[in-house]
Design a protein around this nucleic acid. Structure first.
Lengths: 205, 205, 205, 205
DNA sequence: AATGAATGAGCGTTCATTCAT
DNA sequence: CATGAATGAACGCTCATTCAT
């Protein structure tokens, strides 16, 4: 039936409206300062309508997390193109730094999700999203694997290497928040680049 | 007078009770989800009593931050003893990993403090605590400086290097939390050690 | 639709319930000593329900003020009918005294609103309500103007005269409250009448 | 004993310190925004010490009320000097207007006390202070009586006349608060003077 | 006599969620 | 299916007062 389809389409659209509203708020105000009322008001829906689409606030966040992981994954994938493995790694790092700036709250949200997962989601939901997030390591592992195969990198477990890479980058980006205090007067971008160089040197053959 | 002293001691004890309560809650529930009522209830005090010890919720968090930074600083300092700079770096890293396990609560809190995207503190207080935290970089910079002087390490800004070191370690320890999900079946400790080796290789002359 | 209408009516009724509760409390306890909880409890509503009708406590007060001003205005207007200006003034005065007795709560509230030294409202809201209240002077000014035109009253600014009139009446009614203390044994009504006569004599040509 | 005396003197001094503190706060912040803590802190005493001098906050206010009435009484008395009764009345009115400006919060406090007595004090205390306040009518009655005796004023009950006078003045001063709203652009002082003239005309023989 | 410490009760406001329509 | 209305629970914080010392 055309009717059923149309209805389904409308429902999907509304669902997206809600996520759009939630995301825009997330980016503007941080996830702790979002209320259902605000989401509803931006989505131009009644508060209770939202509950016909998402069983709870948490589920909205879970959906957003998946989105955010997708964004990160795609960002990495796009940056990972090229020949030279070292260069590709560098570009991945830069892309992540860029992402952490252009989509600050999004990035912060994922960060928050990673560091204090049990707080924001009940265990089950968290494991689910967690596993989903693992995907972002794949493009990096791939680059590492190629680097090893081409003899540029040392023999090292590619997944572990990806983890180290993203972990250390992630850790460094944290300190970005101290730009105005302990980092005042330093060029963070340069520091960041040096760190990646150092990492690549460390895994080079 | 003995009386005054006893009073003061009791006051200090109570203060610690409050901080203990706050810390445990913070780690269980995240700073946005803990309330003065909860702290009071765990500390077995009236809500208003807490306000005779701390002027606001924020000040409790600030006090906790300082405590945590002190612990980390002392841990690093103790671990940094020795001759060989590389070895000292390794030991600092191990000490931090150990600390993140043995004093999970403190370590997590500082992590939480660093990574929480929203502003826990009003800018001024934040800057204050931030600056206080900077101290933890000092013992590491010192080791790096010695490494450079002794010709083991490349010429590199010691403070920046300390930052990279602690940042990347910090980022990696984050993933420890994913032991049960994306890290299942891997030996985190070994991975961690490899990461430090890789870092040292990266900055070696 | 009948449904919408009924809804609207019920909403209006609830709104009135809240205002009734607030007014009664205001008069019993003074605006600083009434709480949203008390209003809610008397109105037999949840506290938060009130917030779906009024955005804040202040707005409840503002709504009450307007109601009271309306009543006073209408009372004066009704009493101001007639020919002889002096007589009309007398009747206005009597009507106000009567009002202060029959609708004690409203009258007291407006009195309360006028005399309360501290700022009940933020400046903007206050100015708004103030201006709204100014209307009550209109029917009195009109009478004065006619009195001047007919040669009965001296040339005097009608608005100012209205202000003097209502101000002095208002001040005198205040002392009604001291019936049992400093006014014991006196006939307040007669005193009040004499005062109006005296005022009229004072502005007569 | 000199000891007893000295002790009593010190106690009286402390009592005054407390009243001084309370008064200064009253004048600065209005009586509803005063806390025992603030009084104590200004008086440089422990909070609980105050309770050894006054059984409750209300009693402090009662003491202040008496002070305020004394001030008003003395102000009127001082202004009432002179020969011409009309002139004396005028000067009393002016003095009261001045007082309401120079000691705004004090005046407001008394005003508040008059208009909403049952709220601020328990009945008994209120009647007490009320009666005390009656004194302020005395100097006015005296002037009126002289005016009658000298044939300037009509035969009128002096106490009632005093009440009318002070009541109407009091009522008018109320509107001073609307300086910035409904009175904008008018010269209140002149209006006030006209009002007194009008009153005097009204009671003149 | 003076006080530091403690506290229960209360404040205005916001929240995620439910439910009747 | 969509929603306006309602709500209990909770929030950070302040208060006047009591009491052991």
């Amino acid at each position: 039936m055309g009717k059923k389809e149309r209805r389904e389409k409308e429902r999907e659209k509304r669902r997206q409206d809600i996520l759009d509203a939630a995301r825009s708020l997330l980016l503007k105000r941080g996830h702790h300062n979002i209320s259902m009322r605000q989401i509803a008001s931006i989505a131009e829906l009644g508060v209770s309508t939202i509950y016909t689409y998402f069983p709870s606030k948490e589920d909205i966040f879970a959906a957003l997390s998946r989105e955010a992981f997708d964004l990160i994954h795609d960002t990495i994938l796009a940056a990972a193109a090229g020949r030279d493995p070292a260069r590709r790694m560098r570009r991945i790092g830069e892309a992540l730094l860029l992402l952490s700036e252009s989509h600050k709250s999004y990035y912060d949200f994922i960060d928050y999700f990673i560091s204090t997962p049990e707080i924001i989601f009940p265990a089950e939901l968290k494991a689910q999203v967690d596993t989903y997030g693992k995907r972002i390591l794949d493009p990096i592992s791939a680059v590492v694997r190629l680097g090893i195969e081409s003899g540029r990198f040392r023999r090292i477990d590619p997944l572990e290497c990806a983890l180290m890479f993203i972990g250390s980058i992630h850790g460094l980006i944290h300190f970005r928040k101290m730009d105005e205090t302990i980092l005042r007067g330093r060029n963070f971008r340069a520091l960041f680049a040096r760190h990646i160089d150092c990492f690549i040197t460390g895994i080079s053959a």
